[in-house]
Simulated scan of single mutants.
Amino acid sequence: MRTPHGRQVTLVAAGSFALILAALLRLYVYPHSALHPREPYPATVHLSAAGATYFDWATLRLRVGEPVYRTAILQADPFAGDGDTAVWTELTTTNDRSGARIDYQERKVGFDRRTGVSRSCCEEYVGARRGVRQAGLAFRWPIDARPVAYPFFDPVTLRETRMRYTGEQTVRGLRVHRYEQDTAPVRMEDVADPLPGRILGLPGSAVRVARFAETSRVYWVEPRSGLPIRVEEHIRQTLRTADDQERLVVLDATFRTAEQDVELFAAVAGDFAAWARAVETTAPAVLAGLGAVMLAASALPGRRRRSAAAQDEQEVPGDDLPEAGDPDHGAGPARVVAGQGVDDVDR
């Protein structure tokens, strides 16, 4: 039989364990396990732009009002990264409706698995440029992203520009943060080969030009997971002559994430958010409540159980019981008749 003291010890131990476990889940397990994966998932993003304008470098002709498609594939470097850092390579291809390549870009960068901020490591590069410092966010937002501006690296202009927080919206049933970024025209490169003047509306058979680019982006990010759910990206690239005059638009397109990808990203982000709520909030709250109840119960006074013999002793005091061998045991009270004494009655 468990004694009242043993019951109190058990409740105190169980309640203390529940409170400690609740604190560990919230303050240690969640912060150390809520990380971006080392292997990217989803690993492929499809975007498309309707009614785009682009310059066909193969035929030296300008295409207007054509659909353009962009595919970005993420790959993890299996020989780089660690528990705190992921290293991904992004391969981005832009094609026309026939599948012919319009543009291709490749970059590699390591980033912090919790904050999403890039790290200088692992032989990062953008295109042919080695050692490019890709400052700011790379592929993901921070875990538990806040409604504030974040530095973001633009792989088109190769500049760090702020991603402004512009509000909260709902995408596929998820509460998401909306961020926007705009970059001014930036000189990207000098075109290697001169172009015929007629293409640029200029006289001459060979004109040197430089390529400039400007971008504007909108990201819809699920804040718990830091995963972008939807992206809208407007890219405008032009050719300028030495006098800094814009002569030809070589790309003008607004790319948007394919809806099937939006659905997949929302499902992945929703699963992460549900896990995060369970580990950081729900489970600690339940454990803390149970622990508090058990500790409170341990402080209540125990109920003393009395034996049956003790109860009988209280109901029939031992001094009132006749002893064995008493000659008067079992005798009833003497009868007294009016007008007679006791001795007369006995006679």
Rank of each mutant, 00 (worst) to 15 (best):
A58C: 03
N95T: 15
R38D: 10
Y41T: 14
W57D: 00
T71M: 01
A72I: 09
D96W: 03
A86M: 08
R101P: 00
A18S: 10
A18G: 06
A100T: 07
L27A: 15
K108L: 07
F55H: 02
D56G: 04
D84I: 12
A86F: 06
L24M: 14
L47N: 00
R38S: 11
Y54K: 03
R70M: 09
L35W: 12
S48N: 12
H46M: 03
G65C: 08
V109T: 14
V29F: 15
L19M: 12
V64P: 04
D103H: 02
T115Q: 11
Y28N: 14
R26G: 09
D56C: 08
R114T: 13
D103A: 03
T92Y: 01
T53A: 03
G116D: 09
F55V: 02
E90N: 04
R101F: 07
Y41W: 14
D112T: 13
R26L: 10
R114M: 11
A50W: 08
T59K: 06
A49E: 03
D56R: 05
A72R: 04
R97Y: 11
N95H: 10
R26I: 11
S33C: 12
T89N: 05
G110I: 09
A49W: 03
Y30R: 13
D103F: 02
V68A: 04
V109A: 07
L19Q: 13
P78D: 04
T89V: 08
Q75W: 08
R63T: 07
H46F: 04
R38Y: 11
L91A: 05
L62K: 12
K108S: 05
T71I: 04
A34M: 13
Y104S: 02
W88D: 04
H32V: 14
Y28P: 02
G15V: 06
E66T: 10
G83Q: 13
R114Q: 15
A76S: 12
A18V: 05
A80G: 06
R38P: 00
P67L: 07
A49I: 04
R101H: 08
Y30G: 04
S33I: 13
A22R: 05
L35S: 10
V68W: 00
G110D: 02
R38N: 09
L21D: 11
P40R: 08
S33T: 15
D56K: 05
G83K: 12
A18W: 06
K108F: 07
E39G: 07
R63I: 09
A58N: 09
Y69G: 01
E106V: 03
E66Q: 11
L21N: 09
F17C: 05
G110L: 05
V109E: 06
